[in-house]
Every structure is written in C-alpha cells, then in structure tokens.
Nucleic acid binder design. Structure first.
Ligand SMILES: NC(=O)c1ccc[n+]([C@@H]2O[C@H](COP(=O)([O-])OP(=O)(O)OC[C@H]3O[C@@H](n4cnc5c(N)ncnc54)[C@H](O)[C@@H]3O)[C@@H](O)[C@H]2O)c1
Ligand SMILES: NC(=O)c1ccc[n+]([C@@H]2O[C@H](COP(=O)([O-])OP(=O)(O)OC[C@H]3O[C@@H](n4cnc5c(N)ncnc54)[C@H](O)[C@@H]3O)[C@@H](O)[C@H]2O)c1
Lengths: 223, 223
DNA sequence: GTGGCTGTGTGCACCCGTTCACAAAGTCAC
DNA sequence: GTGACTTTGTGAACGGGTGCACACAGCCAC
C-alpha cells in the first residue's frame, strides 16, 4: 500500500469519525499510543477492521507498539477535511432546528452555525444562540458571505425538496436531511438523511421478532 | 419462496420503513396499485431491489399490475410490528430531548412519548407537551406502568452508558442513542445510534475530496 | 379462447466489506 | 547484537447485498 492515491471505501469513511472521537478522548487523557485492539474495543468494532481502515490513511502504525495518538489524530482530521471549519446553514427553526442551533457540539467540531433561515415571518428576525434568523430567500447571499458549505434541512417534509433545490442553487454541495422525505437532486450533491421514525421502526421490527439479532446501526455493528 | 419462516436481511429491514412511508403517501392520494418501478423511484432505490425486498414479505404482487397499496401497507405494518403502539421514554430533556418530546410525528407513527426523565431538579416536575418530567430513578415504575418498550437517550455523552444500563435494568430492550458515545450492553438489547457529528464529518470528507461519489446514507443510496 | 402486453419473482454473477491468519517489522531487555 | 515478544499490515477466503436479465403469471381486448 504505497503512497499512491488510495480510494477509501464508503464503509471505512463512515467509521473514521467514530475512531476520531475515540482518539480525541485518548488525547485528552494524554494516552501516547493505542493498539488496534484497544481502539477496536472503544469503537465497538473488530480489531482487524480497525487496522485495515487505518491502513487506508497510510502506514502510520508501529509494529509491536501501536499507533501514535496525536499523529493519527492529525492524519485523520486531515483526511476528513477537519483542518478547516465548515459553516452550516440550518433551514427551518422549529423544534428540531432550534435544538440544532443551540447545540454547541457542532461548533466545537468545526461545523459552526453560519446562518439560520425560515419562512415564518414570526421567526425571521429573531435571534437564536446569537444568530439572527433570516428569510430563506436570502440564502444565496448568506452562503456566499459566510462561506457556507453544508445545508441542514429541518423543515416540514413538504418543504424539503424545494428547500434542498434552493440550497443547491445557492452553491451548497452537501446536505443533511432530517425530514422524512426522499430528495431528488443532482448526483453531484452529497446527501445524507437522518430519519428518526425509520430508526424507531427498525427497532420495532426486531422487538416484534422476539429479540432477533441485535440490530445494526447506520454503519455497521454498534455497541 | 413458500410460506416458510423467511429471514429478512438486515439491509431489507432498514428499507422497509422507507417503502412504508411511500405507501402511506400513495394511500392518502387513493392510488390503488403501485409498480415496483414507481415505488423504487419514490424510495430512491433500484426496482429489482424493491421487488426482492417485498418478496420477503410474501408474493403479494400481481404480475402485469403491481402491488395493491392498501394490502401491502397492511402486510408491511404487520411485519414491522406497527399494528400496535410502542411507547417510548426520552431520557434527558435538554435541547434535543425537548424537541423530540414536542414532535408530533412519533405519536402519529405509533411511538407515543410515554415518559420523560431527567436528573436536573429544575426540570423534574415540569411538563413538556403534556407529559410531566420524572426523575431517572423512577424509570422502572414508569416502564412497567406505561408499557414502555423503547428508550431514547438524549443525555450528555458522559451519562449515556449509565442511563442505558438503567433502561435495560428497567426492562427496556430497544434503545435509540443520540449521544455520541459507544454503548456496551448485553447483545440481546437492540441499539441504534444517531450521531449527527458523524454525519457532518462524512459530508466533510466527500466535500474535501472535491466532490467524490455522492455519499450513501445510513442504509444504502439516498436521493 | 387466443394473443399481446405488462410487470413480478428469482437465478445468477458480481462486488464490496468483513474476518481470519500470519509473515514481517519493530521494540525492549540484557 | 541477539532473542523474545508484541502488534501491524495485508493476502485470501468468505458472506451478504446488489442488480441484471429473463421466464412466466396474470390481465385485457377482441
Ligand atoms: N422535532 C423532532 O424531534 C423531529 C424528529 C424527527 C423528525 N423531525 C423532522 O424534522 C423536521 C422539522 O421538525 P420540527 O419538529 O422542527 O418541525 P416544526 O414545525 O417545529 O418546524 C419547522 C420549521 O420549518 C419552517 N419552515 C416551513 N417551511 C419552510 C421553508 N420552505 N423554508 C424554511 N423553513 C420553513 C417553519 O416555519 C418552522 O419553523 C420535520 O420534517 C420533521 O419531520 C423532527
Ligand atoms: N441538541 C442537538 O441538536 C444535538 C445534536 C447532536 C447530538 N446531540 C447529543 O444529544 C445529547 C443531548 O444534547 P442536548 O443538546 O439536548 O444537551 P442538553 O445539555 O441540552 O441536555 C441534556 C439533558 O440531559 C439531562 N441529563 C444529564 N444527565 C442525565 C442523566 N444521568 N439522566 C437523565 N438525564 C440527564 C440534563 O439535565 C439535560 O436536561 C448530547 O449527547 C448531545 O451530544 C444533541
């Protein structure tokens, strides 16, 4: 696995953020190195999988020792594009949108809330977590001026498709969709969907089956 | 594929709720039948996949015609265990917990909020969406009296593991975890995790790669 | 009834991802 | 320097999921 341009498998990409969080934790407690075995435990996956996943980033381990936490943390952040901030815009500041806007965890991880938009005149102009809610129509200017890269959809499902299209028009190329609706967009645009009702229904399925196999999460086994 | 006990693949289970939502939409607009092709379009998947998925439920289609919407809806609801309600408890009524409690979409889909629990004395005793917040310690009685089947964790990550254990002790067998923490529980317990920061980081990865392949969602391609 | 048409159900080949197992690389004690 | 020990990196086997392709079931028109 030399220094060529490796293509990282989809499944691995989905696990990198989990490893990343483990590494942050380890770095916080000043652990200098970590073996694939222990990291696997923390992340709830198989050790061989950890090694294979990490090997896509490069041969950063030391045989007989493990991985240098700080170094791996840096390499992984770089690979995930987390060496820079990615401001997000939240569309729809209802129940969920407000919770997202008030949540500090995103900003901490490099995803500051650059803008909030809604169409409700009662909401436009109000301020949430220090950010003033703007009208959806101002999206293009907001995206341009704040350097917004990611759009989060927290509108009712009926509005989702049109909001998504406006985001794409405004230059956004990555969308996280919380509404239970299937978006039809240019395949160039990266879309991820979080559908809470779907999660509950999957749990319901396994429950009904008198405890079938422990369910798997979005991206592999969970613990 | 006779009337024997079919084992439905994990990947199929994750898609059934998506089909279900499409069917509900179709039923609402009084569409009598639907072809795999059209349903595939609506769900954003491949038509052959739809047919194979549906075939696990039984041979409910009519060749040359398609599937009877109402009938399929019923069969699928039954298979997903949605012919009954599954009350949920939300642990942690902060930003996210309150948004969840206020959200009507769960109750509509058969997942009423049976209880809310927290440990903050300022929150215990208050009422959210008509449900009084109780102390975490009351979980066992609440689970028993309200027939709660599913636990939703919306506490800070540090509390997640201990809350999860208390849920399991109280008799809960299915958990939806919103905190960014890896839970270690009896494999009998079904756990699903929704980690918003992970989703954003995955988007960040593909964005950095100057628009790699459109990302895939939790369970397959998305649109 | 017959023929034509539409769309299901599924066999099959392929691909991606997982896991095992082990050689090689590196560390450390002496 | 040598040897024992630890842990990586990866080849190879396996398993599950996807999507093509097509036989054939069922409907409709006449
Ligand atoms: N609240 C939850 O816990 C929760 C859980 C699961 C899913 N969801 C989904 O998230 C979405 C939002 O849920 P919610 O509870 O926050 O709903 P909500 O009704 O509280 O808020 C929706 C907000 O979107 C705004 N809006 C409507 N049309 C818009 C448009 N075209 N552009 C911009 N904003 C617009 C509304 O003014 C409102 O402020 C829904 O699709 C819902 O299904 C929410
Ligand atoms: N708010 C969001 O939009 C958002 C987004 C992504 C992830 N999350 C995750 O969801 C979780 C909750 O986020 P939040 O923003 O609502 O946090 P929050 O701090 O607003 O609320 C947490 C609540 O949990 C309660 N709590 C603490 N310990 C508890 C315990 N042992 N048992 C029961 N309740 C307890 C607190 O009293 C508080 O009410 C966090 O893990 C966070 O990382 C939240």
């Amino acid at each position: 696995m030399s220094e060529q341009e490796r293509r990282i498998p989809e499944a691995t990409v989905a696990r990198l953020p989990v490893y990343l969080r483990c590494l942050v934790e380890l770095a916080d407690e000043r652990t200098p190195t970590i073996s694939s075995e222990r990291l696997a435990d923390m992340a709830g996956v198989n050790a061989a999988k950890v090694r294979k996943d990490l090997s896509y980033l490069g041969s950063y381990g030391t045989r007989g020792v493990g991985y240098d936490v700080e170094f791996l943390l840096y390499q992984m952040s770089r690979e995930l594009g987390l060496t820079q901030d990615w401001p997000v815009v939240v569309a729809g500041v209802g129940n969920l949108g407000q919770a997202l806007a008030n949540y500090g965890g995103f900003t901490d991880r490099g995803f500051p809330v650059g803008a909030l938009v809604d169409v409700d005149p009662d909401k436009v102009g109000t301020s949430i977590a220090g950010v003033i809610v703007r009208h959806l129509d101002e999206l293009p200017e907001l995206v341009a001026s704040k350097g917004i890269a990611i759009g989060i959809i927290a509108t009712p499902p009926t509005a989702a498709q049109s909001v998504a299209e406006k985001m794409v028009e405004a230059g956004i190329g990555s969308i996280l969709n919380f509404s239970p609706s299937v978006l039809g967009l240019d395949p160039e645009v990266s879309v991820r969907k979080v559908d809470l009702a779907v999660e509950l229904q999957i749990l319901s399925f396994y429950r009904r089956r008198a405890d079938g196999p422990a369910s798997l999460g979005p991206d592999g086994p969970q613990r």
